[in-house]
């Protein structure tokens, strides 16, 4: 699947396109097919997102898994500060990014 991601303009938070809006949770990502570029331009123009780009990913049983480690770290948070990630109470959370 093709995922559209970027950062929230005001807060800088990592966000994922759900098909209708933006979410902090990668698992909410929609498959944007080949509409990604147009969506990115529209959403950047509306100043909802900054630096939007399209990445590859896959729907798995546990949820959406971006293809590249960089996007998985973006989705989770810093692996060396799990307390600051989206899964602060999961000690094995960092394994997911590898």
């Amino acid at each position: 699947m093709k995922i559209l991601t970027g950062n929230d303009l005001k807060t800088g938070a990592v966000i994922w396109w759900t098909g209708v809006s933006w979410s902090l949770d990668v698992n909410d990502s929609a498959d944007v097919g080949d509409h990604g570029a147009a969506l990115a331009a529209r959403e950047e123009g509306a100043r909802n997102v900054v630096g939007a780009y399209i990445v590859d990913g896959a729907k798995t049983e546990e949820g959406v898994r971006p293809a590249h480690i960089k996007e998985r770290i973006r989705a989770l948070g810093p692996t060396v500060r799990l307390d600051l990630t989206l899964k602060p109470s999961d000690p094995a959370a960092a394994d997911w990014v590898i």
Binding site: N7, L9, G12, A13, V14, V50, G51, K70, R74, G77
Partner: peptide, 27 residues
């Protein structure tokens, strides 16, 4: 920037001269 008078392409070099980056998780 927030009002839309500056695009990100225009703003980026300006914010960088003030040490503000857009990194993996935030600014």
């Amino acid at each position: 920037r927030l009002a839309g008078d500056l695009t990100e392409d225009q703003f980026k070099p300006l914010r960088l001269q003030n040490g503000l980056y857009l990194q993996l998780h935030a600014y």
